[in-house]
């Protein structure tokens, strides 16, 4: 499956899960701030990706867990250096450039762009090939 094919499938999932128009789903669009995803939509998106691609996504694999609650990773409303390292390890599909220059914890959801989802699916498919 080419990256374009993967993008098309991911776009289909996001259109369905978030009730979007096709042209809204661009590679750089952020799921929360640009596409209006709320926390529960992430479970819907996860389920729909599993169905669309036929792989299983483990808890915390696509979207992180327990990082924001850990005082070692978050201090004073900001993600610490250690936190960034931990997140990077958990989320190799995400681009951390923006979070590193502005590590406010409220910006963590912005790691989830359409591109990050496509990267994730590409890695999953490659691992199972």
């Amino acid at each position: 499956m080419t990256r374009e094919d993967i993008f098309d499938k991911v776009r289909g999932v996001l259109i369905e899960a978030l009730a979007l128009d096709e042209d809204e789903v661009t590679p750089n669009a952020k799921l929360t701030s640009d596409l209006g995803a709320e926390s529960i939509d992430f479970l819907d998106i996860q389920f729909q990706l599993e169905q669309a691609f036929g792989f299983k996504i483990e808890q915390g694999e696509l979207f992180p867990e327990n990082v924001q609650q850990d005082p070692e990773f978050v201090q004073g409303g900001k993600v610490t250096e250690k936190g960034i390292v931990a997140l990077k390890e958990k989320l190799p599909h995400a681009d951390f450039t923006e979070l590193q220059s502005d590590p406010r914890v409220s910006r963590v959801p912005e790691l989830f762009t359409v591109d990050a989802i496509v990267n994730f699916c590409q890695r999953k498919l490659a691992a199972s090939a």
Binding site: L43, D44, Q46, F47, E50, Q51, Q59
Partner: peptide, 10 residues
């Protein structure tokens, strides 16, 4: 049930 995981179900 179409999908079920530790986090929930569809």
């Amino acid at each position: 049930i179409t999908q079920i995981s530790p986090q929930g179900a569809a």
